[in-house]
Simulated assay, not measured.
Amino acid sequence: MAKALEVEMSDFFGRQYNEAWQFDGDEIARFYCVPTVTVRGDGSIHCLQSREELARFFQGVLDTYKGQGLASTTLHDLRVVPIGDRSALVSMTWNAVDADGRPIREWRQSYNLVRLADGWRILVSTFHLSAAPG
């Protein structure tokens, strides 16, 4: 079961979710539960309570990344922990590169997912943050 779930999560994030980032915020939003909670790289916490709010939020993130030159992302060091039969904790390191393949940023992120009738959805997304200064 664990290996099959790892393959399923690799496809979910490495192909499906990653491809959504080539489109727009609305396409990204369909991968999330409503509501969803996200802890961002700057430490801010957001509870997004509608599909429209998710789409606006992720369009802003996408616009920021594209403004930094984002052309594509890849993931590595995927770790999957089943939580019962219908949920999982998935962690990975993302690498973002520009059109010439130069690195833009790298970060580690974890996701709590639930399996709904229409497939996997992200319930919580958490950037792995460094300890707060001082």
Rank of each mutant, 00 (worst) to 15 (best):
2 A>R: 15
15 R>L: 05
24 D>S: 07
11 D>W: 12
56 R>Y: 12
67 G>H: 02
105 R>E: 09
8 E>M: 08
85 D>N: 12
11 D>C: 02
98 D>G: 12
81 V>A: 06
13 F>N: 00
90 V>C: 11
115 R>W: 06
3 K>M: 11
48 L>C: 12
42 D>Q: 11
21 W>R: 01
87 S>H: 08
33 C>D: 10
96 A>C: 01
5 L>R: 07
53 E>C: 04
123 L>D: 11
102 R>V: 09
63 D>N: 13
4 A>Q: 14
56 R>K: 14
29 A>H: 03
16 Q>H: 12
103 P>G: 05
90 V>I: 13
57 F>L: 08
87 S>Y: 02
128 H>D: 09
94 W>T: 08
98 D>K: 01
95 N>D: 12
112 N>L: 14
10 S>G: 11
72 S>D: 13
37 V>H: 10
32 Y>E: 06
45 I>W: 11
62 L>Q: 07
1 M>Q: 05
35 P>Y: 04
88 A>P: 01
19 E>W: 05
69 G>K: 13
63 D>M: 04
81 V>I: 12
28 I>L: 08
101 G>H: 11
64 T>E: 14
8 E>G: 07
113 L>T: 10
109 Q>L: 08
1 M>L: 06
11 D>F: 03
123 L>A: 13
108 R>N: 10
59 Q>D: 14
110 S>T: 15
69 G>T: 04
103 P>R: 15
38 T>R: 15
99 A>Q: 14
95 N>E: 12
112 N>W: 06
80 V>E: 03
88 A>R: 05
76 H>F: 04
85 D>S: 09
17 Y>V: 00
131 A>D: 10
7 V>S: 09
80 V>Q: 03
102 R>M: 12
31 F>T: 08
51 R>D: 03
18 N>R: 15
80 V>A: 05
57 F>P: 02
27 E>C: 01
46 H>L: 10
111 Y>A: 07
13 F>T: 01
49 Q>W: 03
5 L>M: 01
27 E>F: 00
116 L>W: 00
105 R>Y: 02
26 D>Y: 09
124 V>W: 00
79 R>C: 08
77 D>G: 08
66 K>E: 10
117 A>V: 15
85 D>I: 01
44 S>L: 13
129 L>S: 10
92 M>L: 14
50 S>R: 07
12 F>R: 01
1 M>F: 03
60 G>A: 07
87 S>N: 05
103 P>I: 00
59 Q>W: 09
48 L>E: 06
18 N>T: 09
74 T>N: 09
84 G>C: 13
84 G>P: 05
55 A>V: 15
126 T>P: 00
123 L>Y: 06
125 S>C: 14
40 R>W: 15
64 T>C: 04
27 E>Q: 14
109 Q>V: 14
68 Q>N: 13
86 R>P: 00
44 S>W: 00
94 W>M: 05
108 R>L: 03
97 V>S: 08
106 E>L: 07
23 F>L: 10
59 Q>Y: 02
10 S>I: 00
93 T>G: 06
116 L>G: 06
88 A>T: 09
64 T>V: 02
70 L>Y: 02
8 E>V: 07
76 H>C: 09
35 P>I: 03
94 W>L: 02
2 A>Y: 02
115 R>M: 08
62 L>R: 04
84 G>M: 03
41 G>S: 11
